[in-house]
């Protein structure tokens, strides 16, 4: 048998949610991604704003960051395991790493795309350097930051699952691996359904909505 019957998968899913094993795994993964994502946003937005505004920094690090972004984050896992041991630390490290590069690149590109006219207009109104940053550069980059967040979320979710598959703990990825060890295909597929549904739900209900709202306000929708 290649695949279990859909009814079996559904049964396992409902049972797992009822008993709480799948739910527990889900919340454990959710907690990890929230920590990692917050970390990635903080680092990524800060880095992106700096790279977008500081010319020499961009020249120095810009292409390096693009190169780093093209490395799948799970590749960092062996190194992370050596640094942090078989635990939370390693998983959070690779998950945030996956999102951080994208966040830096998108935010930086957004800052560089701000029309010079807007900056000039603000300067003729006498903004200080700090005000220019907080009241013009940051809000003007919001659409790019949101796009970055969507991508970063997708990258982080993938990295998290890869990380969990390969290390110990109680996340969805680990339940997936458990299914393999028990040769329980319906459990594997039930977890895959949860992983897919979570990815779609977060993107659709949170990020896409936020992005659409901002685009409507700015008049960026066609």
């Amino acid at each position: 048998m290649l695949l279990p019957a859909p009814s079996d998968v559904l049964l396992t899913l409902v049972q797992g949610l009822k008993e709480g094993t799948l739910l527990l795994a889900f919340f454990s993964s959710l907690r990890r991604i929230l920590v990692s994502f917050t970390l990635a946003l903080t680092l990524g937005i800060t880095g992106g704003l700096m790279l977008g505004r500081i010319f020499w920094l961009d020249r120095l690090l810009g292409s390096l960051i693009i190169a780093l972004q093209s490395i799948p984050s799970v590749v960092w896992l062996p190194l992370a395991l050596l640094w942090f041991g078989m635990g939370e630390g390693a998983i959070i490290f690779i998950t945030s790493l996956g999102a951080t590069w994208t966040m830096i690149i998108n935010t930086g590109a957004g800052v560089k795309r701000i029309p010079p006219l807007i900056i000039k207009a603000a300067q003729t109104m006498g903004v200080s350097r700090l005000q220019l940053f907080t009241r013009v550069i940051v809000p003007a980059s919001v659409p790019a930051i949101l796009t970055g967040m969507r991508l970063a979320w997708a990258f982080a979710w993938r990295a998290l699952m890869a990380g969990e598959l390969l290390s110990s703990g109680t996340g969805l990825g680990q339940v997936l691996m458990m299914g393999r060890n028990l040769a329980d295909m319906s459990q594997i597929l039930a977890v895959m359904v949860i992983i897919g549904a979570t990815g779609v739900a977060v993107d659709g209900f949170i990020f896409r909505r936020l992005e659409e709202r901002v685009h409507r306000r700015w008049g960026l929708t066609g």
């Binding site: 029309p115 006219l117 000039k120 207009a121 603000a122 003729t124 809000p139 003007a140 919001v142 700015w218």
Partner: peptide, 13 residues
């Protein structure tokens, strides 16, 4: 001085 530009330069947000 106050300056008015060709294309407004208003803040879209």
């Amino acid at each position: 001085v106050g300056m008015v530009f060709q294309e407004g330069g208003l803040f879209p947000w």
